[in-house]
Amino acid sequence: MTGRDDDQHEGGCGDARSQRRDALVQLRLSKHDSRRDFLKGIAVAGAAIAGGAGCADEHFQKHYKELTDEDKRHVFQRIEQETRAKTGVRVKISDPQPLDGVQFAYALDLSLCNGNRRCAEACARENNLPDEPRFRYIQVLQMERGTVDLERGEHYYEPEKVPQPGKVYLPVQCHHCEKPACIKVCPVGATWREPDGIVVVDYDWCIGCRYCMAACPYFGRRFNFAEPAIRPNRINPEQGYLSNRLRRAGVVEKCTFCLQRTRTGRYPACLEACPTGARKFGDLSDPESEIRVMLERKRVFVLKEDLGTIPRFYYFYT
């Protein structure tokens, strides 16, 4: 099933939208413009809106931060129903809240990473990234040994085996900065930093201007240029409202440290998939957490420290 097929689904939002659009286009192009035609057009457009009641709900939906628990229940129900109608998959939308006093951070051992991209693939499955087009939250840069030259990093490499001799690998994903440039530039406040340090996007509030993508110095964000197409049997039904629920064309998305997993105490999917054990994750505010123990014993660095973004994503060598 492709995204375009989904649009044709009877009663779906895409259907109502396209009817409304067609009606308005006809209206504009009409050579015999008259009040009657105009009213007819409005009637069609109005019917289209009325036909897709869910779409109207969505249209008047408030920003995530303004939603009451009651609103959330309605919104989650609507999303579950829409997803069911669109893909046939029964999903569960949840909204795990930040844990008290927890500050998430991530670390990556560059002496172990061999560029196998298992992390990126596991992330795609966990977070319902589309089969087509194929983009990934985690971009693994292949660089010449002895350099950490991000600008010359190659992430489309496709050798038979990794690691290639003379190459080093550096995975980059959202760094969940303490001072994120992406948030400052968002004109509508559709992206913000949660109390536990996770930078999230409200996909229903994002207008798709991509200012955040231009502002991010780490290429941490991805844009749905096309309607994302995902095979129903690959959809992860455990979905977080602010993380891995299905997105649509025209919105920005990114790594959320798998908040639907991590806020329930589990590790992110990328960490569990890494065959070399290069990835570390934990709570910065807990002095006995793995990440703190590592930070106290190893020399770490962050990317583009001079920009003052204060990433929560550390790299180290052992």
């Binding site: 087009p133 990934r136 992430h155 496709e158 085996k161 990794v162 690691p163």
Partner: peptide, 19 residues
């Protein structure tokens, strides 16, 4: 010594063109 392994497939460039 950790053996060399096959990497997962590369992502596509955002334009839809193959690298």
């Amino acid at each position: 010594k950790f053996p060399a392994i096959e990497p997962e497939a590369a992502p596509w460039p955002p334009t839809g063109m193959k690298a």
